[in-house]
Amino acid sequence: MQRSAGLMFVYRAYVVLFFLYLVAPLAAAGAFAFNDSMFPSLPWQGFTLDWFFSPVEPKLGLFYDDRLLRGLQNSLVIGLIVSALAVAAGTCNAFLFERRQFPFKRLLYILMIVPLVIPGVILGISILVFASMLANFADQTLGLFLTWLRPGIPLIVLGQFSFLTTITSLVIAARLQKFDISLEEAALNLGASRIRVLLTVTLPFLAPALFSAFVVAFLVSFENFNTTLMLVGSDAPLTITMYDRMVKVGSTPVLNAVSVFLMLGSGLLALASVLAQRPRKAA
């Protein structure tokens, strides 16, 4: 390919500019968490960790702010439950679509992908509407009060589960596809039971994919806003709490501290998932 040096320089400059564009808002959100000022803006007043660790107003730090901590706790609970459920369902789906033949397989496969292309807000309202219909029905005909069908953590879990399962299914199915079926056959020939083969041969092979599916689901759940917004009750997860604070109180550097915390947390988890998926060199 013929390339001129000048053109190449412009091209490289463009790529550098693009990465600056990517990093700039994240750097800005992060940097002002350490500014010793009441506002997340210039001028720089000196370095401080108050916005993380200060126990007193006016600079109440993230780790002493009860509402933010409660949001964090809710996010963790929701994330862990929904990821575990999505990985379990995703594993079933992976076996279903990789190993089995059944009528309407193609159509059902498309149905499995569809949740990814439905906007999150719509998933949220449709589940809200459907759950309320069920709850009203139970209330009117059976006299049951099903509070878990009203906005709150159980509904958030269901709402996030509805699209996270697609992601986990695809991740796990991709790994299962690479599995050499003769390994299972060998174990079966050697007299192992089906359950034993599953537990000692197939699932260990899938383990890295199960782990990264769990991490990905947890991260997406933790950061999810659109679906969650429609289903949230009195116990809001961290993103909703942070949004509320942003809209009602305005921005204070404690929100930057939350941002730093989120970036570090998700960065580390994403790294863990990348490392887990990497093929081992010496096996």
Binding site: A24, A28, A29, F225, M242, M246, S251, N256, S259, M263
Partner: peptide, 16 residues
């Protein structure tokens, strides 16, 4: 940045 919440990214733009 794919793993950073929309909220944090939008907040970063606001700060800028």
């Amino acid at each position: 940045p794919l793993w950073v919440s929309d909220l944090v990214r939008a907040y970063g733009w606001i700060v800028l």
